[in-house]
Amino acid sequence: MPENPVRSVLEGKPFRHPLHPMLVHFPIGLFVISLVLDVASYLGRGSHALVLGALYTMCAGVAMGIVAAVPGFVDWTDIRRDHPAKGIGQWHMGLNILVLLIYGISIIARFATTNPRRTDLPLIFTSVIAICVLMVSGYLGGLMVYDDGIGVGRHRRRGRAPVRTIPLTAAGSADGWVSVPGAELMEDPQTLRLSIDGVIVALAKADGAYYAFQEFCTHRYGPLSEGCLKGGQVTCPWHGSLFDLHTGKVQHGPAKTNINVYDVRLVNGKVSIRVPSDDSINAVRRSRVAGATQERDWKTAAEPAPRPARVDRTPDTR
């Protein structure tokens, strides 16, 4: 399914930069300067020009805030449902709506004020409160970018990213293969994010093949399920580490450690994955507890080189 072009522009993909963070400079800056002008009119000798300037910039701030809200909302819908940033985004949105409401009321009140040369003190305080709320909200917005990488490297993504994490278990299967319901219907390219007994796995379909690999990049643990899939490789959305999906090897950094790749098979049109029974969660934890500096990897024990986690699509023989 080709991506909706309107959505892709609102997400800033053609610009390699999301639109929302470009636009939010304006409401933030305009609201601050509006307060500065208010205070200048109040403290100085008083000037109708300053009072008017504060009103103009405030109106422009509200207008730009509304414009910025549109791509902001689209960005929010793009966040995976069980991602911590989804909740931060809700706070960010709620506080921003509050700020716009406060300024809307303040603008109406300004038309009813009597002193043309000085902004009334209650109105100045209203702006101070609104800016405090805005700072908190802007900070939360910044956290979503700098802590969670929302919007970072998104323009490189090709296909659909996971909307939620699908919980699965290997408990019922005798041979360790876990079938992934619905995976045979995946688009190409598309990625699912699975939790198989707590092990977070990205299942990707790209260029006609299925791949399963660990979700977390080994550099700063960026989400590989939101990366760029191409030619049997995945690029981390955050700082561009490139991993081979057949072997899990780092092709180029900044990451230095290889990722885990898992076996995938396609039997009777059903996709299933096998996460090794030597539970890698506990393997890593154990090595940490023992203070071992060398990381443990279940794959390294099995020579020769690990089997590619790849299943070619059955050729169409009709």
């Binding site: 643990y221 230095k256 450690t257 990722i259 885990n260 969660i281 500096t293």
Partner: peptide, 14 residues
Amino acid sequence: WRNVAIAGGARVGE
């Protein structure tokens, strides 16, 4: 995120 990755069974470096 490192802790999330470890809890999620990921291989991590030093």
